Simulated assay, not measured.
Amino acid sequence: MPLPYAVNCSILFTELPLLERPAAAAAAGFDAVEFWWPFPTAAPGDAEVEAFARAVEDAGVALVGMNLTGGDMAAGERGLASLPGREREFRDSVDVAAGLGKRLGIEVFNALYGNRAEGVDARDQDDLAEQNLTRAAALLPGTVVIEPLSGVATYPLRTAADALAVIDRVGAPNVALLFDLYHLAVNGDDLAAVIADHAARIGHVQIADAPGRHEPGTGTIPFDRYLAALTGAGYSGRIALEYLPTTTTERAFDWVRS
């Protein structure tokens, strides 16, 4: 596969403390990493932010992508962009990410949309998301990506078309689609059609096989075909490895080297 890879250090190398994972990725032969929101709160202290930045710098890897706060992911939350009453947390994470982005040269910021809230009009949530994402796009020194997700029934963005509608509504030039082959495939989207029709609007790519969300070759997604189509359509960004390894982390990248 001709495109460069980045390792998602929030789903891989999880046997290690978070701050040791960038160095582990470098030792495994990768020069780029990405993270979900790497802090336990939306507004970490200066020492936490400094320790994270130093871990990336000391490892000698590029941090090419980072999520904004996802809220309580373990409890099922998937972002805060559209959640009333959580505006401060979302904006705090934007401010922290903006500082890290300028220091580390982060290219992509994933702003998870947020689940539908019980008792709240969906139109009000979408209005709030537009406001929050417009501010994020203005402040973050890179591309803000909008991601369709699977596995959470109350998350409203399921297909590329869902995400593109949000992107159109925000209307900022640096807001783009996160093309996660796993989530879109699980949700039944037409991956070939998305590439053919919207390649220029793809800001970042993540891969895991389906079913199972494991490494390529464990499921049925024809990655060679789709990644070749992305290349042919002009995508030149990183391909982020965002999967659960079926064995040890040391064996999780055998498919790359084969």
Rank of each mutant, 00 (worst) to 15 (best):
G79Q: 07
A59C: 10
V64F: 00
G119M: 14
A53G: 13
R135T: 05
G85P: 02
N67Q: 14
A81L: 09
L100E: 01
V108Y: 01
V61D: 11
V33M: 13
A74T: 08
P44E: 07
G114E: 06
E34K: 08
R54M: 07
A23R: 12
F39E: 06
L12P: 03
G119A: 14
E87I: 13
G29Q: 07
G105Q: 04
L16P: 04
D126Q: 04
F30T: 03
L139S: 08
R116W: 05
E20F: 09
E48R: 10
V49Y: 06
G76W: 05
L16T: 04
A27D: 13
L128H: 10
A138F: 04
P84K: 10
F109H: 00
R21K: 10
A53H: 12
S82L: 08
D31Q: 15
E34L: 12
G76S: 12
A32S: 12
A23G: 06
F13S: 00
G29R: 04
N67P: 09
D121F: 10
A97Q: 07
A137H: 00
G70L: 10
G79Y: 06
V94N: 09
D95K: 15
G71Q: 09
M66N: 05
L112A: 13
A47Y: 04
N8H: 00
C9E: 07
I106N: 00
R103W: 07
A122N: 13
A97E: 06
Q131H: 12
S93K: 02
P17G: 03
Y113L: 01
E20P: 08
P141W: 09
D127T: 12
R123S: 15
V64H: 04
G105S: 06
E50R: 12
N110G: 08
A51D: 13
L83F: 06
V120C: 08
T143Y: 01
G70H: 07
A111F: 09
N8D: 09
R91K: 14
L68K: 12
A138P: 08
K102E: 15
D46H: 13
